[in-house]
Design a protein around this nucleic acid. Structure first.
Lengths: 410, 410
DNA sequence: GGTGTTTGTAGTTTAATGCAACATATTAAC
DNA sequence: GTTAATATGTTGCATTAAACTACAAACACC
């Protein structure tokens, strides 16, 4: 009932908030001295020292061994600071992606470095939620020695589903799930008591691709994951915009009716299925792959180029429509189909210019080539992000006493 | 260069933040006792007392005279609290809308009550920016006695233009402006040194329509202002989402190509011009008005109903497309054309259901009927909002010493 | 080697919240 | 009508964490 924005700060909260800010700064900038940290946080040098002392005592921060390659450029005058860094293996986070055809798991450390990954084929539609969760949890934990387990500080799940922010899945058409509390199931399946979050796979992908970059892009980034389906995620000023039902950015269902034929949505126009369907009609190969198609486009084979041209046009149309609503200044393409974009960038740009009114700014478009674990990595990052925030369970002692009953007055 | 999110809290900041939180709580809930406030802010009763004491000393808060109509419902036991309230006329804010055909001004007080308004016809396209600003400033100030002037704490401007968050106008096609620093011009034209903000008119309208409601809607609201042009604003969890260039929600430029004929955008399909253009073709009147059209629709005159039907279809299409991207759960229609919606609500709903896949949630649609000063009111609210925040100039003593030069390390 | 500059630390001060106790105002109960 | 119960507002004191001041240490430059 209380607005979180209204909550006041007590003394402990200040310290917590400052410790969190220090951890975030160290994560973002890599290495900082106490004095540099103090400047970034607008704190007094001595306060910075105190905060670092308590973080060091907790084992989260340490003084870096002096192997830093003597940062080039201008020489600094005065006593050099002692560089501080996060202790990467102080804690770790796990992320899993329960996909339609595979399950991926990722372990990341406090520095959001990928420690290990694991991908296994999986037949999503034929397996129950409970079994899928069991499988995913086991995969994620199998390589972790028991002694290390207690240093786990969070478990994230991503899956192609509409879900609310509490991890309650409304619908997962590709997996046949409906109204299952995924986060709850994972919590129960885990042999540990750690924070658990669940998120749509495209949203998780978007988080993973933007999280931990030293420059937080302050603007609007539209993230597109193009495989058979077209997923999308929106990042505003560095943090995920879920929308009212976690469906924000689901651009695949935009209706693009400029195309000839019956009304089709963007997914049906630029997804892998459509490309390969068209390509099979013209290819001379028995079992043409997307790689063959790319090669043909590169070789300027007219039939392939024509398919690619239709793709570029539909993509441009979709992006323009999306930008009219969210006014993105940055678009990042991911997924296997994104490999087509570099070949067609000029055509896409031409279609964008032709489609939208000239007074509108044109967003930058880039291709992101994470591996197949991007979504699982993003799920793990969500928990890293949470750990480096005031909702962190480091401060559970305070947070636990929330939710006391309270009467409202008319 | 510093992330604001990273900035640490010092002692003064705590008090500031708590005073701000107290003011916001009083604004949101109207009247609270010290003890109620303490609960809302999760503070100790005594701390709440201290904060109120200092706000009272500043003249911003007072104990309410006991004319409260004895709140009904359950009787409370124990000593009743002394109700506190904002002092409405402690300070005031001004908002102006520089429109294409009129200039509106609004004065609001600390309780966001409208104290006075003023609307004058205006021929935007034929007047220079400087002259328009002068005119607007003079209109806003004319009714304010000099003695009261120093209690002004902010001046907001709204205008149909693309502008960044600093009030730099990129383009205002309807007014013929390009690359003018509107906020700067207003600052210079004002005889006072007060915070000045400029915002797109649709965005300002959206702020005005949602600000100060006691229940902050935590979700996504899409706001449509339908006149000749179609403006739009998006409110996320109670605060405006501008997009990268302040163009978020400019849904009027969505391309709706399902409609017969050449490719047209939403504005051309559901704007006043199109409706009246079509209506004139069929109406028997010499100078038919929009009111005539509404009456004809209400009377089920086939020619008018057919126009309205096309309108409903295009509107539904636009809303569905927008919701695929921002996942709004609430849509608010404003502007004169919104009066058509109640007559066509069922048709719009039918088209929405026909257009979008059944698995997607359907947003609620409501009509907002603010007067013509909605946008100017919103501009004033922006400054009220700013005053009740940590960026407030009440704390300028601290904020002034920001922006010291700082070197980055590679 | 001296000077100047920046860093890290220790001791002291300041400010704001938390806590506990108490007077006060009202309802409920006898 | 008196007493008990309950919640409010206030007061003095304790606690906490950051700011401030001063100083020794480490390095660059002359």
């Amino acid at each position: 009932m209380n607005d979180p924005a209204l909550t006041a700060s007590s003394h402990r909260r200040i310290r917590q908030s400052n410790e969190v800010a220090a951890l975030r700064a160290l994560h973002q900038f890599g290495r900082l001295s106490r004095a540099e940290l103090a400047r970034k946080l607008r704190l007094n040098r001595s306060s910075s020292g105190h905060i670092i002392a308590s973080l060091t005592a907790d084992g989260l921060v340490r003084e870096a061994i002096e192997d830093s390659p003597e940062q080039p450029g201008y020489a600094r005058v005065g006593r050099p600071g002692i560089m501080l860094e996060l202790v990467p293996d102080a804690i770790f986070f796990l992320g899993v992606e329960i996909g339609v055809e595979h399950i991926s798991t990722v372990e990341i450390d406090l520095g959001t470095n990928i420690v290990s990954t694991n991908v296994e084929p999986f037949d999503g539609p034929s397996i129950s939620v409970e079994a899928a969760v069991d499988r995913a949890v086991n995969m994620a934990l199998q390589s972790i020695p028991a002694s290390k387990l207690e240093r786990c500080e969070g478990f994230g799940v991503s899956t192609p589903a509409q879900m609310d922010k509490h991890g309650l899945v409304r619908l997962a058409p590709l997996l046949g799930w409906r109204n299952v509390h995924l986060a709850e199931l994972v919590r129960n399946a885990l042999p540990l008591r750690v924070p658990v979050l669940a998120e749509n796979d495209a949203n998780a992908f978007a988080i993973g691709a933007t999280y931990g970059r030293s420059e937080v892009h302050s603007g609007v980034t539209l993230f597109l994951v193009m495989e058979s389906g077209i997923g999308g995620g929106i990042i505003i000023d560095g943090s995920l915009f879920r929308g009212a039902n976690g469906l924000a950015g689901e651009i695949g269902h935009l209706i693009i009716s400029d195309a000839p034929g019956p009304r089709r949505n963007l997914e049906q126009l630029i997804g892998l299925e459509n490309i390969m369907g068209e390509y099979r009609k013209t290819s001379t190969l028995d079992h043409p792959t997307f790689g063959n198609f790319l090669a043909d486009v590169q070789d300027r084979l007219p039939s392939a180029v024509s398919i690619a041209e239709q793709w570029a046009k539909a993509l441009a149309m979709g992006l323009v429509q999306a930008c009219r609503i969210i006014d993105a200044d940055q678009i990042v393409l991911g997924g296997s189909v994104a490999a087509l974009y570099p070949l067609m960038a000029a055509r896409v740009a031409a279609h964008i210019h032709a489609t939208q009114e000239s007074s509108f700014p044109v967003p930058s478009i880039t291709v992101n080539d994470e591996g197949t674990v991007g979504s699982a990595f993003g799920a793990a990052c969500m928990l890293h992000q949470r750990y480096l925030s005031l909702e962190s369970q480091r401060f559970a002692g305070e947070a636990a006493e929330l939710e006391e009953p309270e009467e409202d007055e008319g």
